[in-house]
């Protein structure tokens, strides 16, 4: 079993997804198609529901209304009857969905290698030696072949996030979710993580990326979706969203992004 280019990328379909925290509606009837083998970026201001939506896709967050299908399987609820899905079936579906978190969430008491091998041993039930071989392969793939014995505390933020990506890809997911993967990183470490993500994209992995990296969204994404206040305001190609957005809210968001990141010095 080698870590080869994705051949069976999954698609996802979100239909009228709503989510409530008590009275507060975090997601408002969000519908979105995630095409297979493509990169979809979710952008928008903080608190707009991007991360919540992403976390609904592997049911880490429960949605209350609507449906999310991975290929053609509804996640979280039984297709018939609508009751909560049995835990075992949910776990089985999650095996196909890799996730990378803002805070890496590596297990600090395990080495990089064991972080990656854990799922292979405990979920895929591979023998230890085989699990470790695949884990080493996954770490080599993200450029950390020489760091297998390090604990997370002995790795930089960028290296930790790459271990986290290796942990996800070692399970050979068919779709990957990235929740602001570079937001916790020092600016000079962002590039190495984005490079690994670009490589995955080039291999045809289905990727859903919540990001504030507009450059990444503009250059790597196939589709960009803009959210605000729990609503999906606009979705389209990067050219459509960044070039000449029809919606005023998208324009305002991008303008504030430009203002924040502009560094021309006023002449005299």
């Amino acid at each position: 079993m080698a870590l080869t280019t994705t051949t069976n990328a999954a698609s996802a379909r979100l239909e009228n997804v709503s989510k409530f925290y008590g009275e507060f509606q975090a997601l408002r009837d969000v519908s979105l198609v995630i095409p297979p083998g493509k990169v979809t970026c979710l952008i928008g201001p903080s608190g707009s529901g991007k991360s919540t939506l992403l976390r609904c896709i592997n049911f880490l967050e429960e949605y209350d209304r609507g449906g999310i299908w991975i290929d053609d399987r509804l996640i979280g609820y039984d297709a018939v009857g609508g009751r909560r899905m049995a835990p075992g079936r949910l776990r089985e579906m999650r095996r196909d969905i890799g996730m990378v978190f803002q805070q890496f969430n590596l297990w600090p008491h395990m080495t990089a290698l064991q972080n990656v091998a854990e799922g292979l041993e405990r979920v895929k039930r591979l023998p230890r030696a085989q699990a470790q071989r695949i884990a080493a392969e996954a770490l080599a793939k993200v450029g950390l072949g020489d760091k297998t014995g390090n604990h997370p505390s002995r790795l930089s933020g960028g290296q930790q996030q790459r271990v986290a990506i290796a942990r996800a890809i070692a399970m050979q997911p068919r779709i990957m979710l990235f929740d602001e993967p570079t937001s916790a990183l020092d600016p000079e470490l962002v590039g190495e993580v984005l490079a690994v993500m670009k490589q995955l994209a080039a291999e045809g992995m289905t990727m859903v990326v919540v990001t504030h990296e507009m450059g990444f969204a503009a250059h790597v994404a196939d589709r960009v979706a803009f959210m605000e206040r729990g609503e999906l305001v606009a979705a389209g190609t990067p050219a459509e969203i960044f070039g000449n957005p029809a919606d005023a809210r998208v324009r305002a968001f991008l303008q504030s992004y430009h203002d924040r990141n502009a560094f021309d010095v006023q002449a005299g």
Partner: peptide
């Protein structure tokens, strides 16, 4: 959450 996402 990371463990849940991996499927443990």
């Amino acid at each position: 959450e990371a463990a849940i996402a991996v499927g443990l």
